[in-house]
C-alpha cells in the first residue's frame, strides 16, 4: 500500500490500442452511459487487434508511455474471423519477452472487451491505470533499452507467428 500512496499524485500515460469493432465501440458505450474512468488513458483506434504490431508497443514504451493496453473482440467474436487469435498469440509471446527484459507485467496487458461491455471497459481501464499509477513512472532497464534499440530496427517482426488460427488454443 505504501507504494500506492507514494505515487498517488503520479499521472501515468497509458496507451490503449483498441479494435474498431469491439473495444472502441465498448468505450463509446461507456461514454454514452456517462461512466467515469481515469483520464490517463488514450485510445488509439485500429481496425483489428491483429493490426497491432509489437513494434508499436515497443515504440510507446521507448518514447515514454508508462503502460500499454491491447484490446480486441473476445476470442471467437472477431469481426475479421481470426485477427484476435493472431493478436493473442503475438502479444502473449511478446509480453513474456518484455517481462524477461525487466518490464513489470502490469505495464503491458492484453484484454478482450466487447462492444456491449461498457462496464468492463471502465473497470479494465480503471484497474490498469491504478496499477500503473502504483508502479510509478517507467524506468528503462539497460536490457530493455538495448532490446528496444534492436526492436526499432525491425527484429521484433521475427517474433510474429505465421501459423493459422486453428492452431491457437482457445481460451480467454
Amino acid at each position: 500500500m505504501s507504494v500506492v500512496e507514494s505515487n498517488s499524485d503520479f499521472q501515468p500515460t497509458v496507451l490503449a490500442f483498441c479494435c474498431h469493432w469491439c473495444t472502441y465501440s465498448g468505450a463509446d458505450l461507456a461514454g454514452l452511459n456517462r461512466m467515469n474512468y481515469p483520464a490517463n488513458i488514450r485510445l488509439l483506434r485500429v481496425p483489428c487487434s491483429g493490426r497491432v504490431n509489437p513494434q508499436y508497443v515497443l515504440t510507446a514504451f521507448n518514447k515514454g508511455c508508462d503502460g500499454v493496453l491491447v484490446c480486441g473482440c473476445h476470442p471467437g467474436d472477431c469481426h475479421y474471423v481470426s485477427g484476435n487469435y493472431f493478436a493473442k498469440r503475438r502479444m502473449m509471446a511478446f509480453k513474456r519477452l518484455l517481462e524477461y527484459t525487466g518490464l513489470e507485467p502490469e505495464r503491458f496487458q492484453i484484454r478482450w472487451i466487447s462492444g456491449s461491455e461498457a462496464g468492463k471497459f471502465r473497470d479494465v481501464v480503471t484497474q490498469v491505470c491504478e496499477e500503473i499509477r502504483a508502479l510509478g513512472p517507467l524506468k528503462h532497464s539497460a536490457s530493455f533499452e538495448a532490446f528496444a534499440e534492436q526492436g526499432a530496427l525491425g527484429t521484433v517482426n521475427a517474433l510474429t507467428p505465421a501459423n493459422k488460427a486453428e492452431e491457437v488454443v482457445e481460451n480467454d
Binding site: L15, L44, V46, P47, C48, G50, R51, V52, N53, P54, Q55, Y56, T59, A60, K63, C65, H79, Y80, S82, G83, F86, R90, G154, N157, A158, T160, A162
Partner: peptide, 29 residues
C-alpha cells in the same frame, strides 16, 4: 482491411492503407 498480414510481414512490405505503420507510429509519437 483487417491488417493481420501487415504484422505477419517480416520484411515490412505489407501495409494497410488508412492505418499505415507510419500513421500509427506518428500517433504514438
Amino acid at each position: 482491411g483487417c491488417g493481420a498480414c501487415t504484422v505477419a510481414c517480416r520484411p515490412g512490405a505489407m501495409d494497410l492503407k488508412g492505418f499505415s505503420d507510419e500513421q500509427i507510429m506518428r500517433e504514438v509519437d
